[in-house]
């Protein structure tokens, strides 16, 4: 590809040797929303060797305001984000190997994908998944880069197993955060600011310049012009169940997780079945009840005041309710 990466090679801390390393590394990004799509675009442009992307959702109109890889076309087609992202990413750089998964991230589904992964990038939208990521990263000894944003604010921290404190050290209890993008909104610069920090840290790790990694937790607020770096060395706990001396990885106990969950602030319930769904069969059945839209990855229909989206991997989203009971009733009426 000739001079494709010339400007990156000219940057001294990368150089020819660094560029070659980048092209031989494998990064996994968990989530293809705002943080995920922008991180993926950066890494693919930078020439990462292989990228694994995972997302359980599909592209919706309200995503376009801040989710970089998607256009109006993918909204109309109701493409799953992982698939839509992969399409665009390959147009940007056809030489990157991209593995895309439309699925829920659980300890069980994630573990087999971590083989030969050099760095994990957090682009999830909830702390439940982040604590799973934190446990898995320490169990498998893979650096991971935490990032989150809401409103005009965001934060990031680079977690290096055996060196830095982990997410559990910094937040003893899992935050029950009231502040999600769906409750207090978000502006795109907050996304990019987090992503800029995440990608910069990823590049340092990719070229092996670990000494350059930021050891502080960064927090910012672009609307109020704040930028804060917090020294966290003292937060590391010897008895931390994730990064301490006798780790028990408490968040990997998948059995305890419910099979139905309310998606925070989205007026949506997700129901998960262990079996894959046969979308063709389902379409055949459901089109008698209501007009069905159907692509290779999902099937959607409007029913009463609800919208249902069935995914191949066994999940169904019921939009229009926060009640698990109500959602189950509707689900059983249609697919049960």
């Amino acid at each position: 590809m000739g001079n494709r990466y010339s400007r990156q090679i000219l940057f001294k801390p990368i150089g020819e040797a660094g560029q070659e390393k980048i092209q031989n590394k494998h990064i996994l990004i968990l989530g293809c929303g705002a943080l995920g799509s922008a991180n993926a675009e950066n890494l693919v442009r930078a020439g990462i060797g292989k990228l694994t992307i995972i997302d359980r959702d599909y592209v919706e109109l309200s995503n376009l305001q801040r989710q970089q890889l998607y256009t109006e076309k993918e909204v109309t087609e109701q493409l799953p984000k992982a698939m839509a992202a992969k399409q665009r990413l390959q147009q940007i750089n056809s030489s990157v190997v991209i593995d895309a998964y439309v699925m829920d991230a659980t300890p069980v589904t994630l573990l087999p994908l971590l083989k030969n992964v050099d760095i994990l990038i957090d682009a999830t939208d909830n702390f439940e998944t982040r604590f799973i990521l934190n446990d898995l990263a320490h169990k498998e000894q893979i650096p991971w880069i935490y990032g989150s944003c809401v409103g005009s604010t965001g934060m990031s921290f680079t977690v290096l197993p055996d060196e830095t404190p982990c997410l559990g050290c910094l937040m003893d209890t899992m935050p029950v955060s009231g502040a999600t993008c769906d409750s207090v909104g978000i502006i795109s610069p907050a996304v990019q600011m987090v992503v800029a920090h995440q990608t910069a840290e990823a590049l340092k790790l990719l070229v092996g310049d670990n000494n350059a990694c930021r050891t502080k937790l960064v927090t910012f607020d672009l609307w109020n012009n704040h930028y804060h770096m917090m020294k966290v060395d003292r937060a590391k706990k010897a008895d931390c169940p994730t990064c301490g001396e006798n780790p028990s990885y408490p968040h990997l106990n998948y059995e305890s997780r419910t099979k139905s969950e309310v998606l925070c602030g989205r007026n949506t319930v997700q129901i998960r079945t262990p079996q894959k769904l046969n979308l063709d069969e389902l379409a055949h059945r459901l089109q008698k009840i209501a007009p069905v839209r159907h692509n290779h990855f999902l099937l959607s229909l409007e029913y009463e005041s609800y919208r249902l989206v069935f995914f191949q991997d066994g999940r169904t989203l019921i939009h229009g309710t926060d009640s698990i009971e109500k959602a189950k009733t509707i689900y059983n009426q249609l697919a049960g």
């Binding site: 909830n126 702390f127 989150s148 809401v150 965001g154 955060s177 993008c181 927090t219 003292r234």
Partner: peptide
Amino acid sequence: EYVMDDEIAKAGDTVAFIPPVSGG
């Protein structure tokens, strides 16, 4: 610098309270 709840802040110090945000 990160501190725990039983540590002390004195006059002249700046104390920052940083709630984890979850969006992504």
